[in-house]
Design a protein around this nucleic acid. Sequence first.
RNA 1: GCGCUCGUAGCUCAGUCCGGAUAGAGCGCAGCCCUGCGGAGGCUGAGGUCGUGGGUUCGAGUCCCACCGAGCGCGCCA
Length: 552
Amino acid sequence: MVKHELERLISEAVRKAQAAGDLPAVAVPDAPLERPQRPEHGDYASSLAMRLARLAGQSPMEIAKTAVKHMDLDEAVGSVDVAPPGFLNIRLSPSWLAAQVDAILEAGERFGDVPLGGGRSLQVEYVSANPVGPIHVGNGRGLALGDTLANVLAAAGYQVQREYLVNDAGTQTETFAATLYARYQQLFGREVEIPEGGYPGEYMISLAQRLREEKGDSLLAPPGEPYPPEVHDLGVTRMMDVIRDDLAMVGVHYDRWFSERSLYSDGTYEKSLAHLRDGGFVTEREGAVWLSSSELGDEKDNVLVRSTGAPTYFASDIAYHYDKFLVRGFQRVIDVWGADHQGHVPRMKAAAAALGVDPERLTIILYQLVTLKRGAEVVRLSKRAGEVVTLREVVEEVGADAVRFFFVSRAADSHMDFDIELAKRQSAENPVYYVQYAHARIAGILSHAAERIRSFEDGDVSLLTHESELALVRKMLQLAELVESVAVSLEPHQLPYYAMDLAAAFHDFYEKCRVVSDDEALSKARLKLVAAAKLALARALGLMGVSAPERM
RNA sequence: GCGCUCGUAGCUCAGUCCGGAUAGAGCGCAGCCCUGCGGAGGCUGAGGUCGUGGGUUCGAGUCCCACCGAGCGCGCCA
């Protein structure tokens, strides 16, 4: 990547200046290259001279000039200027930029890949909504975040596994089953109410109807008796079918759907508990079993096994992470959770430590919950009130691409409002179409060209010298830097902003430069440029899980 | 009460991690551009005490402190 190459050249220059005695031999601070906002400040800028000034006892301007004097030449570098108060402004060489078009075409669909991960294994777990209802809008955020992150990490050279934890063992699915059974009985004319704290949503009635279609009255127990186990299992299975469809609709596919219950049936739970005991982090008091998490950075101890003998959600999650780290051996695990789980973070970190796993290997990304609105009115996502705004409903209204682009555009920390009315009204104004339009426009140009020019493989990219042509190349080259920075920061919301910029660079070029013209040599060169831009746009969109249409 | 997160243009949000040059984008608003490859496009303009007050610094939207406001968390719930 040219950015790293330039950083290397600059620190080399300083070292050489020190060796030559032009700069004092002080420790050189880190100074990553910046992207200046103003084009006249070049493609990259370094503030190293300012950072070095106090240590070196020289003025930033002097230091910058000295550094330039000792800097090696590189074919990518067009010029290096010193600007007050001591910036080093680097401009890329136009001929080098033009030549990158061929490099992009060569990289093809892998353009933007970066060797950061080195094939290390990494797991991303996201959504993992309880199988007690369909995916709702609030989950949209976790899905866009987690899925995009997984895409980017794969592009950054990690071996990524996507996983959904199916909470099929807890009290919530029991309440779900009880509700389902009540609805099922109602279909056969029994006068029963859904349980207190149950799920009053309409979808439970459809689910009950489905059970009746599949099983007739065979699931009916004698009146007053609890539901047969099959109601629970079949209900959860059918609910997961719905959830799988909901997620597929927005392009989310998992490598593995992990059953929480399997932790108990295959002995993982017992093993993880034994492992904690061996480490000496387990105590018993008041009839319950506790993890001494307060010794490991949490504010307090937490219950693993209730006095009833039933494991807590915490114990379940420990067993699950025991499986992730110690059984399956992921080097790194990323969990994407809603901010309502924030209290769970320190204890899971403590649990990792208790398992002998460096807590650094567990990254938990919290995203702020979505406030759902219908106009000015706040819609409470309480399942008890039964008002669920499903993801499906919104996707059918505004489209999967717009939904994903919208959710991935917001930083995880931002507290966002989702106004369903506004989203519907403004779906045509969603910026995603601006980016997709650029892609479709290029497809149009390429098919227009195909009727006139046999092939442009022999196009000479050195003919690309127009300012807007080079600006487009510059923007394309930024993709790899972005993939790297997102893979490190785990903040994929940078992606849509980049995609907008890239599309803008293309549209600007399109306005100023005719691609297919009487000048065949230039036409071929520009067709190469445009084909490269198409790759870059498709990649940027693809990383976000958004389609790149040939026509709209 | 304590803790975490947030407060930037009319609206929705980037920029804060790692301080740097005149604070950006989309939408909305006012105006302009089609006798050539897709006008879901391009160009121009109006619009900002970066929540408030202190502090650190050559330099603060960015770091520190206090305060105000909002969301979330502080269970033998998940």
